[in-house]
Amino acid sequence: MFDHFAWSVVATPLLVLLGTWLSADRLRPDLAPRVFAWSAVVAALASTVNLVVFGLKALAQIPAVAAVGDWSADVVVADTAHVPWVPGLSLVWACAVAIAVGAQWWRRRRVLRAARAEVEWLEPRGDVVTVADERVEAFALPGTRGRPGRIVLTTGILDILDERQRVAVIAHERAHLAGDHHTLVWLTRVAATAHPVLWPVARKVAYLVERAADEAAAVELGDRRHVARAIGFAALAAARSGGVARSHGLPAALGAAPGVVPRRVSALMVPRERRRWTAVLPVLLAIGTVVWTFECVYDLHELLALASIR
């Protein structure tokens, strides 16, 4: 069974990381975040399932558990005798993943609830809500089943933008809501929590959703250079005000690590490229690791069945 651990837990996440590094910027901006987000999620899920399977094997090696299950603990142990540390490590890792992901889910739920509480009493103008705050901030607040998504702007950002720049920023945030980008960012962060090798992929997806929203805004306004100038100007003003829009950990026009906004502006200043073929490799990798994971589960079943023969 060790080959499953080597492929799904070690090799696949590294291949997803490598594939993201080599091809993320070559894929169409509207397609790239979905391809790499779901590739990371599938890789992390496959890794976690394999960890759980090996964790169950670690439990099955305990004589008391084997007695209850009516199988031979020695037979189960012999399957990974050349790598005796794998089952124990997998059990600890799987438990750590469950705790970390649970804590992350609870923290996100609490933050979103607080964010909605801040704006739900305000009167929206369409899908836009204005918050009285001198900081320069703008972000997309996802909706729930009973509440639509909202675009949140502070009075600080409205004061420094002209009408066309406001339209560009709002179009950018509206693209985040339409593309469900907050879900992609969140799921990729969960994947990275489950497998730390995927953290660079999570950061890349956070950048790619900004690029996708930039391109959507450029299409809506019909002027790529105008969108580039609006985003660059707003980001510079946000940095000076100390209110760069990292609000609530959500995708935002201004919320980016140092150096990211210049890259986005630069990308908007050149003609848009249309490429899809690079999406094939991560999709095939995701399908392959899912099939391999099902085989790992089946192998555990076969091992326990073999151990039950006396």
Rank of each mutant, 00 (worst) to 15 (best):
E123A: 15
G179W: 03
F233D: 09
P262Y: 01
E118A: 14
E273Y: 04
R147F: 10
R174T: 05
E120N: 06
D3M: 11
V261K: 02
V97D: 05
I170G: 01
Q61A: 15
V261E: 07
R310A: 13
V290T: 12
A40M: 06
R125I: 11
F54K: 03
G232S: 05
A138S: 14
V9F: 08
A305Q: 15
W277E: 10
W105K: 10
V167D: 14
T193W: 00
A37C: 11
D214C: 01
R164D: 14
G156T: 02
E273H: 11
G288P: 04
A175T: 06
T188Q: 04
V190N: 00
A253L: 08
R26I: 05
P251E: 02
S241V: 06
P262T: 03
V75Y: 03
A213S: 14
T80W: 01
L208C: 06
V111N: 05
T293Y: 05
R107Q: 15
A168P: 03
E118T: 09
A257W: 01
D30Y: 00
R246V: 13
I170R: 00
W85F: 11
V42Y: 04
L161A: 01
R246T: 13
F54P: 03
A73I: 06
R189G: 12
V219H: 06
P148M: 12
L198F: 06
Q165D: 13
A64L: 13
R145S: 11
H82A: 15
R109K: 12
V297L: 13
T183L: 13
H195Y: 07
V152N: 01
